[in-house]
């Protein structure tokens, strides 16, 4: 029941980026400190997790858009 275009992108990435930066700044998060807490193993695991979730979201969006 939607007239939104296919592959609708939601919120512009730059807006989300600003929001996250602002939340980190507001709460006094030191990004360099945060980066140093991550081991290489954790980085790899998180990267894989994000890729997996992105592909699941893509399939969900495609199944929502199909046959429109």
């Amino acid at each position: 029941m939607s007239n939104l275009p296919k592959n609708q992108k939601g919120i512009p990435n730059i807006a989300v980026d600003l929001l996250v930066s602002e939340i980190f700044r507001k709460n006094g998060v030191n990004l360099n400190n945060a980066k140093s807490k991550l081991s290489d193993e954790q980085k790899t695991a998180i990267k894989e997790l994000v890729e997996e979730l992105s592909s699941q979201v893509d399939s969900f969006m495609n199944s929502n858009n199909e046959k429109r």
Binding site: M1, S2, Q8, N13, V20, A34, L53, V57, N64
Partner: peptide, 27 residues
């Protein structure tokens, strides 16, 4: 064919937030 636009947009926004956080910490 009905689409729950709210839920679709929200899922995308949440993923965008996750990606933005991950990018900030250089992953």
């Amino acid at each position: 064919h009905t689409t729950d636009t709210d839920v679709a947009v929200n899922i995308q926004a949440m993923l965008q937030i996750l990606v933005a956080i991950v990018a900030k910490v250089d992953i």
